[in-house]
Design a protein around this nucleic acid. Structure first.
Lengths: 154, 154
DNA sequence: TAAAATTCCATGTAATACCATATAAATATT
DNA sequence: AATATTTATATGGTATTACATGGAATTTTA
């Protein structure tokens, strides 16, 4: 299974190129497209990313499931339009499209954050602010990190 | 698997020619017909498109399985009747037929929007309006885009 | 033979492939 | 254990190619 872990901070040059951390690259090694899929996060000021295999799974599911309302279907469909296929160059870099740079507020550095089956790309400052906010909310609600029981069949 | 992602805005010349985005073209590279299948969307003011392979698959399913309701069967039949085979010229362009231009309200620009296994072609303004509407409806119904593959057995 | 459709060719721009170097990590050597 | 050597990774810049697009030439068909 593809697993993205840990954080990496890389620079962006004036052509909007960033090196994808080599650990992430090697996690994607066996997929049918040599690069990443990236789209604006629905809930945060960052870029959501994954490999093509996950995207194919989502597409297939959407195609085969009959229980979506038109409103649901249209909403999910919008995501495919926002998603960008970003191939690696020979050096393992991608080019960040304008719209994703704008959405994330990224300037000259990009923070890659592993989330397991997916990862995110953040403007470092925004990530820090968000982290503080998350911890604050957790404290207010007295939340503690825990594992939920794993559903059967997964 | 054929996946259409992201959006591209291309111009239409006075002969109704449009360049199909090269990413879409390469997604269709290995199909038996070098071009796209296009038909008026039954629910939106846009053009629905895909590769010939998907049409063949649907036709085959229609023939072999009992999984379609009468209503579904009739809808698919309608689509087949209105579907146009639009071949690429040497430069990767297609010619948009009059009826599709009229149905979509396209004038001098065409917005190609990836939907995963299919894609759509929109008049840019119409797409923007429709997007706003989709997001509004989603908000009303408290929907959030499900970008997770649904685990089997759940 | 005129009109329409298709194929062919030309060009500016933007994307990407290529090469060179710097930095960091890993391994080997003393 | 400290240092040297090698390897892998990240980064910067240049050259080349591909793409979208406009128009001309050729073929088709009405």
């Amino acid at each position: 299974m593809t697993l993205f872990l840990s954080k990496t901070l890389n620079k962006i040059d004036n052509k909007s190129r960033v090196s994808v951390p080599s650990t992430f690259r090697s996690a994607l090694k066996n997929q049918s497209f040599n690069g990443i899929i990236a789209f604006p996060s629905y809930s945060d000021r960052c870029i959501d990313s994954c490999g093509i295999n996950r995207m194919e799974l989502i597409a297939q599911n959407l195609d085969e499931t009959e229980n979506y309302s038109k409103a649901e279907f249209d909403l999910i469909s919008l995501c495919f339009g926002e998603a960008e296929k970003l191939p690696f160059d020979k050096e393992g870099r991608i080019i960040l499209p304008k719209n994703l740079i704008e959405h994330s507020g990224i300037k000259d550095e990009a923070l890659f954050v592993g989330l397991g089956p997916t990862f995110q790309i953040w403007e470092p400052k925004t990530f820090d602010q968000n982290k503080i906010l998350t911890l604050k909310k957790a404290k207010e609600k007295n939340l503690k990190p825990r594992l939920k029981p794993i559903p059967k069949g997964v």
